[in-house]
Simulated scan of single mutants.
Amino acid sequence: MRPLVWGLIIVVTLVIQATLLPLITAGGVRPDLLLLVVVSAGLLLGRDQGVGMGFFAGLLQDLASGNIFGASILSKTAVGYIAGHMERKVFKEKILLPLMAVLIATVINNTVMIVLLVSLGFKVDVPTAVDNTLFVLGYNAVLAIPVHQIIYRVAKSELPDPNG
C-alpha cells in the first residue's frame, strides 16, 4: 500500500466532488465520487485497503461538509469493509463488477446515513431520501466504470500477478 498516493487520490477526489460536481447536480443531488473510489480500492486491494480508504474518505468528507461528524466515516468504512471482503471472490478485470458493486454500495451507504440520522433524532423525510438515493444510484452507475478503470491503473502495481 502506498499511503501517500492513495491519500492524494482521496484529496483530489474530494476537491473534484466539492468544486466541480455541484455544477452538474439534479435537484441538489450529485454523484459520490469518494464512494466510487472506496469501492474500487476495496474490490481491487482487499479489506484493509477498503477500510483504510473508507475511513480516510469519510473523515475528509465529514470535515469538508459540516454535516454530522462521523456519519460519513461510519458509512464509507462499512462500504470499504464489504467491498474489500469481496476482493478474493471476484474477477478484477470484469467490467460489470464495479457497476454492480457501486449500486449495492450506494444503497448501503445511503441506508446507513438515513438510519444514523433517524436514530440520532434528526428529522428525515424518508421518501425524499429514497428518491435522492435513486438519483445518486444513476449518477454513480454512469461514473462507476471510468472511476474503477482509473483506480485499477493506479492499483495495478499492487495487485498479485495472476500468472504466478
Score class of each variant (00 low, 15 high):
N110P: 05
T106C: 12
A26W: 09
K89N: 11
I104E: 03
M1E: 06
M1Q: 02
G46E: 06
L99W: 13
L63A: 14
A129C: 03
L159A: 04
G42T: 04
F91S: 09
V115Y: 13
G84V: 08
L34A: 00
G121I: 10
A18L: 12
V118D: 02
I145N: 01
V130L: 14
G58W: 11
F55E: 04
G70Y: 06
M53V: 04
F135S: 00
L134S: 07
V12L: 15
V107D: 03
L97C: 11
V112H: 06
L137E: 05
A141K: 05
M113N: 14
T133M: 15
H85L: 10
A18D: 07
T25W: 10
S157N: 09
D131Q: 12
A18H: 05
K156F: 14
G27N: 03
L96K: 01
V37G: 13
G52A: 13
Q17D: 06
S75Q: 06
D161M: 01
I9H: 03
M86Q: 13
S119M: 15
L117K: 07
T13I: 04
T111Q: 03
G164M: 12
G7T: 06
P127W: 14
V11F: 15
G46H: 07
L45S: 00
P146F: 06
R2Y: 10
L23M: 11
G164H: 09
I73K: 02
W6R: 02
L43H: 09
D48Y: 00
I16K: 00
L60E: 02
I82L: 15
A105Q: 04
T133L: 15
W6D: 08
F122I: 04
T25I: 07
Q61F: 10
M86E: 07
I108V: 15
G70K: 03
I16Q: 07
L14E: 10
Q49G: 00
K123R: 12
L45M: 14
T128E: 13
D161S: 05
I95M: 11
